[in-house]
């Protein structure tokens, strides 16, 4: 793959997306062995820069890197206190001077990884930027759907939650649409961008309509930490009108799968009985996260011979 960075699903062709997923099937097998390590990225330095809190994504990237034998360095800081006084350009120059092979970055402002990438020799992987994109999340979601459903084209997928500010929704809408799925979104009007229909998705009027006859139902995390101005009255009321609950199971297809990017707010966007129920694939998503991130790292770092991973 000639691509140097993974900044967003927006840049990827369906072919590239399929290629990542195909490779992820191989990398997944590494995690299923007793010795979960291959030497492919030995001697490569990878920086994980997290300017926003993250547990799962950061761990997932780090595990993926370690299983490929890369040297990983983590830097986490919440808020922008560290970036104060240093411009984005200076940050980029300093990082570049340390000669990493890859920089994995999460930042609270959309476009930060894109601008960083322009100033870097290293490959940049966007691990979430503002309300914009979170490409590896969409890829791992797609991998989970493909594993369960065999194919993605023609599937009906519902995404429920803060569509306006969710980068998971941003990347998933792009990714699923590119792969031929039909996406329906549902959110309180106060969390739905006015121009969402231009992305080609359907907008459902209520939760029941959104989930009826769908192959996949994805609930998004309500970002409690993210808003000062209230977009809905309370978490209780959110759960009442927009939370996935047992009473909704009757509208779902028997083979519907329920997804969530995590971490779950139990009893807010999804009830415990649903999250832990037979339709839930939430933990498979987490496993696939490692596989997809391994695949992305391999492809960005020149690919070499991808069969090396199965040695």
């Amino acid at each position: 793959m000639p691509r140097k960075h993974l900044l967003g699903i927006a840049d990827l062709s369906p072919f590239e997306i399929s290629m990542i997923l195909d490779l992820a099937e191989s990398t997944k097998s590494i995690s299923e062995r007793t010795i979960k390590k291959v030497p492919t990225l030995r001697g490569r330095t990878i920086l994980n820069l997290f300017f926003e809190p993250s547990t799962r994504t950061r761990l997932s990237f780090e595990i993926a890197q370690k299983r490929l034998s890369a040297d990983t360095v983590n830097f986490s800081v919440s808020g922008s206190s560290v970036s104060k006084g240093e411009t984005l350009v200076d940050t980029a120059k300093n990082l570049a001077a340390m000669r990493p092979s890859v920089i994995v970055i999460r930042h609270g402002v959309a476009g930060y990884p894109h601008r960083l990438a322009k100033l870097m020799d290293a490959s940049v992987i966007n691990a979430g930027d503002g309300f914009h994109e979170h490409p590896t999340q969409a890829l791992l979601d797609l991998m989970t759907i493909r594993e369960r459903k065999g194919q993605v084209e023609g599937l009906k997928v519902a995404i429920i939650g803060d569509i306006a500010r969710s980068r998971v929704a941003g990347s998933n809408i792009l990714c699923l649409s590119k792969m031929g799925a039909e996406v329906t979104v549902m959110a309180p009007r106060s969390m739905l961008p006015y121009h969402i229909k231009k992305t080609g998705v359907n907008v459902a009027a209520n939760l029941k309509d959104a989930i009826t006859n769908k192959d996949v139902v994805m609930a998004l995390r309500i970002q409690r930490e993210r808003d000062s101005v209230s977009r809905f009255p309370s978490l209780r009321e959110y759960n009442r009108y927009y939370g996935l609950k047992m009473e909704h199971m009757q509208y779902l297809k028997d083979d519907c799968i329920i997804m969530h990017p995590g971490p779950i707010n139990r009893g807010v966007e999804i009830d415990p009985e649903v999250a832990d129920g037979p339709l839930s694939v939430i933990l498979e998503q987490v496993s696939n996260g490692v596989a997809v991130r391994m695949a992305v790292l391999l492809l960005l770092l020149g690919g070499r011979n991808i069969y090396e991973v199965s040695d």
């Binding site: 927006a10 980068r167 231009k198």
Partner: peptide, 9 residues
């Protein structure tokens, strides 16, 4: 607008 939605700003 659509661009702000697309760019996530």
């Amino acid at each position: 607008g659509f661009v702000s939605t697309k760019l996530g700003l």
